[in-house]
Lab assay of single mutants.
Amino acid sequence: RALPCPAHVVFRYQAGREDELTITEGEWLEVIEEGDADEWVKARNQHGEVGFVPERYLNFPD
């Protein structure tokens, strides 16, 4: 997929490290980079905060 792209959060995730982003179910993010580890992506939330989130917690519109 082309980046950046929108993504809808389907599961809540609490950041466990400083470089991760806490996300809430129902929130929209902008995915800006593929992650440095499998199944992680770097995203920006509506407040401009950036961090890594688990890709499987997101839904990408067609």
Rank of each mutant, 00 (worst) to 15 (best):
A7G: 06
G26P: 02
R56I: 07
N45T: 05
E20H: 09
G26T: 01
V50D: 03
W40I: 09
G35W: 06
Y57R: 05
R1P: 03
D62N: 08
Q14F: 12
E55S: 11
H8T: 08
G26I: 04
A37G: 11
F52S: 11
H47T: 09
G35P: 05
F52N: 09
T24H: 14
E20S: 05
C5A: 04
E49H: 12
L3I: 11
P4W: 03
Q14R: 09
E27Y: 01
H8W: 12
T24C: 09
A15F: 00
R17V: 07
L29R: 02
R17T: 09
F60M: 07
P61T: 15
V53G: 03
E33C: 11
T22L: 02
W28D: 11
I32Y: 11
I32A: 01
V41D: 01
L58N: 00
V53C: 07
E25D: 12
C5H: 09
G51T: 02
G48V: 02
R56C: 12
E27V: 01
Q14K: 11
V53I: 12
D36E: 14
A37Y: 07
D36A: 09
F11M: 15
F60V: 09
V53P: 01
E39G: 14
A2E: 15
Q14Y: 07
T24E: 15
L29D: 03
P6H: 12
K42G: 02
G35D: 08
H8E: 08
E25A: 09
F52R: 11
V31Q: 00
N45H: 09
R56Q: 13
E49M: 08
A2W: 09
A7I: 00
P4C: 06
G51W: 00
A15I: 02
E55M: 14
E33S: 14
D62M: 08
D62Y: 09
C5T: 04
R17A: 12
N59S: 12
V31H: 02
R12I: 01
E55I: 14
E20Y: 04
R44V: 09
E39M: 15
E33K: 06
E20P: 00
V10I: 12
E20M: 04
R12E: 15
E55L: 14
L58F: 01
R17N: 15
E34G: 09
Q46L: 11
T22V: 01
W28R: 14
W40N: 06
A37V: 14
E55A: 12
V41H: 00
N59W: 07
L21K: 00
H47Q: 12
D38M: 09
A43D: 01
Y13W: 09
V9T: 04
P6F: 06
P6M: 05
N59D: 14
A43R: 01
V31I: 12
L3R: 06
A43C: 12
E27F: 01
E25P: 11
C5E: 03
W40V: 10
E30I: 06
I23E: 01
Y57H: 15
G48D: 08
W28Q: 13
D36I: 14
W40R: 15
G48C: 07
R17D: 09
W28A: 13
E30A: 05
A15E: 05
Q14D: 13
E25G: 06
P6S: 06
A43Q: 01
N59H: 13
E39V: 08
P6C: 10
N45A: 03
F60H: 06
G16I: 10
Y57S: 15
P54K: 11
L21Y: 00
G48S: 09
E18G: 11
F11P: 02
A43W: 01
E20I: 02
D38H: 13
L58S: 03
A15M: 01
V31G: 01
V50F: 06
E25R: 06
G51A: 02
V41L: 08
K42C: 07
R17C: 14
P61V: 13
V9H: 01
E33I: 02
E18K: 07
F52K: 14
R56L: 10
L58E: 00
Q46T: 12
D36K: 15
V53A: 03
V50P: 01
R44P: 03
F52I: 09
G51Q: 00
G26F: 01
D38A: 14
L29T: 02
P4F: 05
G16F: 09
D62E: 15
D36H: 14
R12W: 05
P61R: 10
E20N: 05
F60Y: 12
N59F: 10
V41S: 02
F11R: 12
E34N: 12
V41R: 04
R12T: 13
L3E: 04
Q14S: 10
T22H: 04
G48E: 09
V50I: 07
L21N: 00
V31L: 05
L3H: 08
V50G: 03
E34T: 11
W40G: 04
N45Q: 01
R12L: 07
T22Y: 01
R1D: 06
G26D: 11
N59P: 00
E33A: 11
L21D: 01
A43L: 01
V41T: 03
D36C: 08
R44Y: 03
T22P: 02
P54V: 03
T22M: 03
E55F: 09
D38E: 15
G26M: 02
A37Q: 14
D38V: 11
V41Y: 09
E27I: 04
V53Y: 04
H8G: 03
W28L: 14
V31W: 01
D19C: 14
H47W: 08
R17I: 04
G35Y: 07
F60R: 06
H47C: 11
N45R: 00
K42T: 11
D19N: 12
E30Y: 07
V10F: 05
E33W: 03
N45F: 01
E39I: 10
R56W: 07
K42V: 10
G51K: 05
Y13C: 04
K42P: 00
A15K: 10
V31K: 01
R1A: 05
R44L: 06
F60A: 04
G35V: 13
D19F: 13
A7Q: 01
E34Y: 11
V9C: 06
R1S: 09
N45Y: 05
V9P: 02
R17Q: 10
D36N: 10
L3N: 10
D62K: 09
R44G: 01
H47V: 13
R12S: 15
L21T: 00
A43V: 11
L29H: 03
D62C: 15
I32D: 02
R17P: 01
G35I: 07
E39N: 15
Q14V: 09
F11H: 14
N59I: 11
K42W: 08
L58I: 10
G26L: 02
V53Q: 03
P4D: 04
D36Q: 14
V53W: 00
P54Q: 10
